[in-house]
Amino acid sequence: MLEIRNLYASVDGNEILKGINLKVNKGEVHAIMGPNGSGKSTLAKVLAGHPSYEVTRGEVLFEGKNLLELSPDVRAREGVFMAFQYPIEVPGVSNAQFLRLAYNEKQKHLGQEELDPLEFKDLLKEKAKIVEMEASFMTRSVNEGFSGGEKKRNEILQMAVLDPKLSVLDETDSGLDIDALRIVAEGVNKLHDPNKAVILVTHYQRLLNYITPDFVHVLSAGRIVKEGGKELALELEEKGYDWLKNGSVAAGAK
């Protein structure tokens, strides 16, 4: 589904990603871990097409298409979803309005039926159950005045509504208490199926207790330095990231 080849990216002239290679197939859950500043979030933003990040080398194929030449909104309509670490507030625009517009844009893009406000309300009600959200959230402005946990749940709700092929969750566990973490993780699990893929970007192993990854990739200084199965995450939890710095770099990770 997704193939990243030798990806280099920089922001304000500073090179952050220095040759990332990663392949994600349908049905897989990948965890990208690494210390602060290793480039995890940059990778997520580059996949979504954040304008501040410049890709200087390499390519990204999504379902065989060159993802990098698509604008962020087209990527989204093609099925790439990113859950933001810090979801943005949009004053005056209700959650329902916003989501219906996004939903219909995608439907239009796929040549499928658009929903009127009433039909969409039913859909939204259904999806809101997945993240245990109250109906009242739908009429409130997007993320405005939401608590940290509510914002993250709102991200998963959007994921549920937009039904992406590839979901990139950027530090979705940060700032969540245990209950909110459970709701969010269960939401992600419920939404997952063999035709979809998930990339979890996370600093801590905690989230992986709830969402079991098939593969774990460790990022350091813009490169993948170690890869393995879910047990790698536990190892990291135990030893921290420091031991990676001591030369045990898996040079040229595949």
Partner: peptide, 13 residues
């Protein structure tokens, strides 16, 4: 820019 990116990431032009 962040606001625009957020909305565009949801498929809105």
């Amino acid at each position: 820019e962040e606001q625009l990116f957020y909305l565009m990431q949801r498929g809105i032009s």
